Simulated scan of single mutants.
Amino acid sequence: MTPVLEARHLTRHFGAIRAVDDVSFALAPGELLALIGPNGAGKSTCFNMAMGQLAPSSGQVLLEGRDITGWPARRIWRAGVGRTFQITATYASMRVIENVQMACLSHHRRTFSLIPRAHRLYRDEAMALLETVGMGAQAERHAAILAYGDLKRLELAMALAHAPRLLLMDEPTAGMAPGERAALMELVAGIVAERGTAVLFTEHDMDVVFGHAQRIMVMNRGQIIADGTPQAIRGDARVREVYLGGGAITAGRGADG
């Protein structure tokens, strides 16, 4: 089976600093993969190269076998990759449903229709996406007054607007209460199971990582030092030493950056 996402020998230098050093991995359809590591491990750099926000110094990024190395982020989005951000990217002045309609307009290449009838386009499609993420009842509220957890759900609905085959989630539960974190990741896991979407996410909350990821990759100093099931990672001596200072990996522990 062709991987949805494949990184081959990715390297990224910032002057004399090698932020990512010969990283290779593959992500299968319907797989929920967490990328974790201590501050400065190279997670964000690796993540941003996969989305086209940062060009690698060397190596390749493949999407379903197609080389997308160096493509701009918008072109990668068009190719079937969704993205959510650590800090939510929504339109605060618009209603919830209008935010999702905007994503639908972009997907259908109808941004030229913004004036004067955009509010009438793709309402049913937008409402279906909001129902998927449990936000249907808040469709007419303004995004500016939403609780942070609901903003995260809204952003997820927007990311799903073009039915991505790959979803990249940067700190999806950052800033959320513990109950909201679990609910959001259960929602993501359900989408993975129902649609076969592959998901790569970075996360600091170990409850989220070990409670929901099917597979975990651990980075340190620009390299992947472990890759396996949550059970295997929990028992990996090198992970405990490098990532958590030699202690046991327990719920509620995390790392910065």
Rank of each mutant, 00 (worst) to 15 (best):
P29T: 08
N220R: 06
F47G: 00
G59R: 04
M158N: 03
T197S: 03
G175D: 14
R215N: 12
A237L: 08
T11R: 04
A126F: 00
Q86P: 09
G246L: 04
M135W: 00
F85D: 04
P172Y: 10
P29C: 10
R221A: 13
A7P: 03
G149C: 06
A163L: 04
G82R: 10
I87N: 15
V239L: 06
L154I: 08
G30Q: 09
Q53M: 14
A55T: 12
E171L: 09
G136Q: 11
P38E: 02
I87E: 15
A193M: 02
R123W: 10
Y243E: 00
A147R: 05
G52L: 03
Q60F: 00
G65V: 01
D22R: 06
A182Y: 10
G30V: 07
A226N: 06
H9A: 14
A183K: 03
A92S: 12
H162R: 11
L166G: 03
A79N: 01
D67Y: 03
V199Y: 03
T229G: 05
M1Y: 13
R74A: 14
T250D: 07
Q101V: 02
H107Q: 10
V218P: 06
R120S: 12
I17F: 15
I97T: 00
W77L: 11
I233T: 04
T250P: 00
A103T: 05
D21P: 07
V188C: 10
I224P: 04
H162N: 11
H108D: 07
V81A: 11
W71L: 13
S106W: 09
I36G: 05
L166M: 09
F112E: 14
A147P: 04
M217I: 11
L10G: 09
A139M: 01
H119T: 07
L244T: 10
R181H: 08
P178Y: 08
K152A: 09
R165S: 12
L200G: 07
L129A: 11
Y122A: 09
P172R: 07
V81H: 02
R181V: 08
G245S: 07
A34S: 05
A251R: 09
Q138T: 07
R253K: 05
G257C: 02
R123D: 08
R109P: 06
L63C: 02
T197H: 01
M51N: 15
D256E: 03
R238N: 14
V23E: 04
S24A: 11
A183H: 07
A26E: 14
Q86W: 03
G65Q: 01
P38Q: 05
L63R: 01
H13F: 15
I36Y: 10
R83H: 04
N39E: 01
L5D: 11
H162Q: 13
L154S: 04
H108S: 07
L10Q: 06
G80E: 09
A226Q: 05
A55V: 05
Q86H: 02
R120K: 11
A79T: 01
G70F: 03
V208G: 11
G59S: 01
G40E: 01
M185P: 09
D207A: 12
V242I: 15
